[in-house]
Design a protein around this nucleic acid. Structure first.
Lengths: 103, 103
DNA sequence: GAATCATATTGACAAAATTCGATATGTCTT
DNA sequence: AAGACATATCGAATTTTGTCAATATGATTC
């Protein structure tokens, strides 16, 4: 077992909360700074910061500092990794347990 | 917005808990009944039942009754859907925000 | 049909996640 | 360097999630 449960869970935490999902859907349209995200979310600034930290730590979102602004966008590498993980986890190990045809 | 945040979150909840991840990793090896899962998990029976309900409601796991046993396995359709969702959420809408080459 | 076994549900508690207001930090402007 | 602005962190309160023991349900066996 090379990848730990903790690692998987950290990555998928990104997708398990309503507010984070809203953020992801905004970032899908392109890079945004925190203040723009905040405008559309009905939470206070510190809560957004909390969620953005989880998103960045999951690797699915990456951030970039520009002066006093922080810009966020979906990370291609991070999302590829999440997809790889999901594929791996849900991919059966084909050990003929529900083989309908052959036996 | 056709698919709600709630729907996405319900699906990804499957992957956001250590115990559920352990279950998924067992089911990856093939169908199992609840009692076998329980043996390997260090939680009590009602807790397992709680987690299995979340997994089944996510669609990622499907269950089948055989007499007094309940068997669980990874749902191909459910996991395909989870992967579709993840692809959709993390796929950028390419609106030229981080275009390095062309401009 | 009574006893037994596997799983589900309930209610109470514990632990973790989320929220907010207040404040800190770091950057830009003047 | 003082003021303004954007974001991060802290501490406390609240909400949600996960846990267990007890009990219920539903099927099987005797």
């Amino acid at each position: 077992m090379s990848i730990t449960n903790e690692e998987y869970v950290r990555v998928f935490k990104a997708f398990c909360d309503d507010k984070r999902m809203s953020v992801l859907r905004m970032l899908k349209e392109g890079e945004e700074c925190a203040c723009r995200l905040l405008e559309n979310l009905d939470i206070c600034q510190s809560s957004l910061s909390y969620h953005m930290k989880i998103l960045v730590e999951s690797g699915v979102v990456e951030s970039r500092q520009d002066g006093k602004w922080t810009y966020y966008k979906i990370s291609k590498e991070g999302s590829r990794r999440a997809i790889d993980y999901l594929n791996f986890i849900t991919e059966a190990n084909e050990k003929s347990s529900d083989c309908d045809r052959c036996c």
